[in-house]
Nucleic acid binder design. Structure first.
Length: 613
DNA sequence: AAAAAAT
């Protein structure tokens, strides 16, 4: 009995060798196109069977129906406008209903238990690895806040009254005490303040903005929303840069909102819009969305942002970078969303470049800036390696790594390898190559259909295909347990992207390995990469240091002379553009903290950056 | 230059 795919790859390799074939040969004679893969047991090299049915999230195919049984006759019959009337939770036509009771009763009959425990009251969520945060590891993390009248942090969930229903969900999630970002952000948000927060993903960031949103909606029971027509009026909007991340946020938010009467819906592109419309018609309080689909729905007048009271941008620096900013600006400023000050705006991200902070302040009103460090305050948990690999040698080198990966598997438990490439084409090509060489790989990128993307991600998470080839679509935010190894097959051009990519491993207190293939195509990254690794106490190869110093004064375009790309520091606090105070109050950062912009590496403090996912 | 995001 084989114990791992690596064994079978090794076996097939030896079979090939025995049969006199030179070089790696396909284990299978027939090519199966990507969209037909990941089907049940067509392969014999699979990892040990997934221990448990993966996650409570049983989303199948398109976004849909985690919402539970359809109520009433949907279909052609007229939409039930009652849910647009009174009552928080956007439901319960009986305007005066106590929110909690209303939500509770209705929840019982129609709300799927997002904890995946067949409706039992005290569900098992213990092995829910998504949230398996090692809370003890979050002690003594440096925290910085700035802004006027910052509410003090809390130490326990008990200190904040989120309501009994939410409290119960907190227990179901096995959250014993709030993480630092939650300790700080929740009181700020409950106090109604706008917030710009830097915190790594996986540290409870989603909960940090979801709890206050949900509690706020529950509190305001008698919000009257317009009704009539087919327009829905969500009270909260959560935007994220990828569809998968939106799904992930939605799944989390459903847990937090379970039986609170607060309805969470997700909309995103690539999936049939009709199903999403039906979900919306059944009522929506919190809308999670990717920008494109949201704009579409607003323009079709199926969604109005007029009643939005809470706006959250996840991966906010990404949302406001060149590719996204116009869309976000359109949504926030040119549609019917209430202006700054009449809504509460919260921006969360792991990295927060200074120039993005400035942009972001357009969307904020008298905001509080919050920066929270990470477990171990560094990437201690991630061993970073960089190897010089010529373009032509990358594949065979990867094969070596994948074979070596076998040794790192722990008692038959699948360990996952995430391989980042630069282009969609490159992803297809590498996936195909791995596949014909007997490696159980799949891929995710923006040219694959949404169904393929979701299937690939599921297949990877479950260990069925423990190798995932990905573009940057998977670089941010995705919480994938058991990623033991991140391979930067192609290095990104931006060090921030590198930081986000390697942050897919070493999560929640577990250790991880990150290997990068470096060659002459990556010269512009030499310096920032060398700096980052050094600050994280990683072994920097001498050759990389040489490249770094060589590029030093050539001022490549990767070298934005305008200050640190990571803003662990509130831009409002470094009025002059010179050596800002060290975030850690004179810690070990040789580069002088965040505020040093002009030179090279300008104040970008890798040790800190890496501490933020 | 590339990726992502509506159809």
């Amino acid at each position: 009995m084989r114990t791992s795919w690596a064994d079978s790859v090794a076996d097939s390799a030896s079979e090939n060798a025995a049969s006199g074939l030179s070089g790696p040969r396909p284990t299978r004679a027939t090519y199966i196109p990507p969209h037909l893969r990941n089907r049940p047991p067509s392969s014999d090299f699979l990892a040990p069977p997934p221990a448990a049915p993966s996650l409570g999230n049983d989303r199948v195919g398109y976004g849909g129906p985690a919402g539970g049984s359809r109520r009433g006759g949907g279909g052609a019959s007229k939409p039930d406008f009652g849910h647009l009337g009174y009552g928080s939770g956007g439901r319960g036509g009986g305007g005066g209903w106590n929110n909690r009771i209303g939500g509770w009763e209705r929840g019982r009959e129609r709300e799927v238990n997002p904890f995946g425990n067949d409706g039992v009251a005290e569900p098992a969520f213990e092995v829910q690895e998504n949230t398996g945060i090692n809370f003890d590891a979050y002690e003594d993390i440096p925290v910085e806040t700035s802004g006027q009248n910052v509410p003090p942090p809390v130490n326990t969930f008990a200190e904040i009254d989120l309501g009994e229903a939410v409290n119960q969900n907190i227990r179901r999630c096995k959250y014993v005490k709030p993480t630092p970002v939650q300790r700080n952000a929740i009181p700020i948000l409950l106090g109604g303040r706008d917030l710009m927060a830097c915190a790594q993903t996986g540290s409870g960031k989603t909960a940090a903005f979801c709890f206050p949103i949900i509690a706020g909606i529950m509190r305001e029971q008698y919000v009257q929303r317009p009704h009539g027509g087919r327009t829905v009026y969500p009270l909260a909007l959560i935007l994220s840069p990828t569809r998968e991340l939106s799904c992930q946020i939605h799944d989390e938010a459903k847990k937090f909102a379970y039986q609170t009467g607060v309805k969470v819906v997700v909309v995103y592109g690539g999936a049939p819009v009709n199903q999403q419309l039906r979900e919306l018609e059944r009522g929506v309080d919190v809308l999670v969305a990717t920008p494109g689909r949201l704009v579409d729905l607003v323009e079709r007048a199926r969604v109005s942002l007029h009643m939005i009271r809470y706006l959250a941008l996840d991966e906010a620096d990404r949302m406001l970078d060149m590719g996204f900013e116009p869309q976000i600006r359109k949504i926030v400023e040119q549609m019917d969303m209430p202006p700054c000050g009449r809504r509460q705006t919260m921006l969360f991200s792991a990295t927060f470049p200074k120039e993005i902070q400035r942009l972001a302040s357009d969307f904020l009103s008298n905001y509080i800036f919050l920066a929270v460090g990470r477990v171990g305050s560094s990437t201690d948990l991630i061993v970073q390696r960089v190897e010089y690999v010529h373009e032509t040698d990358k594949r065979s080198h990867l094969m070596d790594l994948l074979h070596a990966q076998r040794e790192t598997e722990v008692n038959g438990k699948h360990s996952l390898t995430l391989v980042f490439v630069e282009t969609k084409k490159g992803a297809d090509s590498l996936e195909h190559w791995l596949y014909v060489n007997g490696f159980p790989a799949t891929s995710i990128h923006g040219d694959r259909s949404q169904q393929e993307r979701e299937t690939a991600l599921r297949s990877f998470k479950s260990g069925k295909t423990p190798i995932l080839v990905a573009t940057d679509v998977a670089a941010r935010g995705l919480d994938i347990p058991h990623v033991a190894h991140v391979v930067n097959f192609d290095l990104p051009n931006d060090i921030d992207d590198y930081v986000h990519r390697i942050g897919r491993t070493g999560r929640a207190g577990k250790t991880g390995l990150a290997t990068a293939f470096f060659n002459e195509n990556n010269l512009s990254l030499a310096r920032p990469l060398a700096d980052l690794m050094q600050e994280a106490n990683q072994e920097v190869p001498a050759w990389l240091t040489r490249y770094a110093s060589r590029v030093s004064f050539s001022g490549g375009k990767n070298r934005r002379s305008v200050g640190p790309r990571f803003g662990g520091r509130d831009v409002r606090r470094d009025g002059t553009f010179n050596r800002g105070t060290d975030y850690y109050g004179g810690g070990n950062s040789g580069s002088g903290g965040y505020g040093v912009p002009s030179g090279y590496g300008g104040g970008f403090n890798p040790a800190v950056a890496s501490a933020w996912d």
